[in-house]
Design a protein around this nucleic acid. Structure first.
Lengths: 213, 213
DNA sequence: ACATAATGTTAAAGCTATTAACTTTAGGCC
DNA sequence: GGCCTAAAGTTAATAGCTTTAACATTATGT
């Protein structure tokens, strides 16, 4: 903060809560979430290190707000993909998977925050992250639509959704954290996802064929 | 450390390096890896807070040693499963997947350490974690053996291994971090893994059938 | 206007990581 | 055995972060 800034600045920030969330998101983007320091977010927002405590219970609480922001973005992306592909098509399911993987890899620095241990540490009566719920809800309904169109009745769409989610999530996570490099593999993630995703969808149709006999 | 301990203790610990690794593993088991403090490991080993620096460059270096220990355990478990199932059988592949999932969930506190951001942060010329390499090598060869037995020639066993790994990894990670709770689902993970794993294996056989036409 | 709640600030306590300077012990060599 | 050197500990100090307490300023409703 320069001297000029200091002069311009009013005592009250006006929108500090959101400013802190944005600052935190930027800092995490830049330096990973382990090294994130609350005071840095405060500094970036131009306030003292104690100011954040007027808006967040503690550091973790601010991080949860960042999670909410990020998962909201995921559900937006999901909605966009849904709008661009015919409902109930296999292509749509695969595009959603691809979208998930690129979201995860685009936001590498947020991975542990979004999907890691800190998700566990939610305290007592905090509201659950609505973005994730909503995003999965959208995905589930897309998968259910495909099941309808494919006349697959014996298999729960929820189970299929969870399998597809796990596949995309695992692929994204392993790629993100360079686990493939470690074993000297450098696969084409999108291709792997499409191929394996198709196998899972085929699996459901096979199951149907089987029950028909 | 009690006064009696202090009296018994020799100036030199004798095996401090290993004692610190074990202490760190225990502490992480107890309180998660975010809250792990180097000084706590030192305290538990009965030495001063500066002593660890004679054996590890810094905190991260000690954590990497813990990763190595844990991934060694994974490769041991893998070997055990291989010994208990007929080589090349589908059952063996599925058992390996189940083993992976239970390893991950048994060591929940280590998840981020093993598979999270900290894997990225390996500095310069450090040796790569041999446990993970070896474990995957074993899995890959098991999958390759299955492919041989199933006369699947057109599909790279590596790709199939990566798909199966990603599936198990994603399932384990999501379960571990209560992401299924968040969407009000409580699936049977082993069943999901078996079902989806079979689909992936079937997918390869389908691909073969296709090329035969 | 004024009372009060909201929102900032400064100062301080308590942890942690890491380093520097000093001490004790182990082991090789005469 | 005695001595020298390196290895492995210790203490003390620095620097940074989180969180709280006490105090200051600004908004807002009546």
């Amino acid at each position: 903060m320069t001297a000029a800034d200091k002069k311009n600045r009013r005592y009250h920030h006006g929108d500090l809560r959101n400013a802190l969330i944005v600052a935190a998101a930027e800092l995490i983007e830049e330096g990973g979430c382990d090294d994130f320091a609350l005071v840095d977010a405060a500094r970036r927002a131009g306030v003292s290190s104690a100011a954040p405590y007027r808006h967040f219970r503690d550091r973790e609480d601010l991080l949860q707000a960042v999670v909410e922001l990020a998962s909201w973005e995921l559900s937006c992306r999901t909605r966009k993909v849904l709008a661009e592909h015919p409902r109930g098509s296999r292509e749509c399911i695969l595009a959603l998977g691809k979208c998930y993987v690129s979201f995860v890899t685009d936001h590498g620095a947020f991975y542990d925050l979004l999907w890691g241990d800190s998700s566990n540490r939610r305290q007592g009566s905090q509201p659950p992250p609505t973005g994730k719920r909503e995003g999965f809800g959208l995905f589930l309904s897309a998968v259910a639509a495909w099941c309808d169109g494919s006349a697959v009745t014996e298999q729960d769409p929820l189970d299929l959704s969870l399998k597809l989610w796990a596949l995309a999530h695992g692929l994204a996570g392993l790629a993100m954290h360079h686990q493939f490099d470690l074993i000297d593999a450098s696969p084409d993630i999108d291709e792997l996802l499409a191929s394996a995703g198709n196998s899972l969808l085929d699996g459901v149709e096979l199951a149907r064929d089987h029950t028909k006999r």
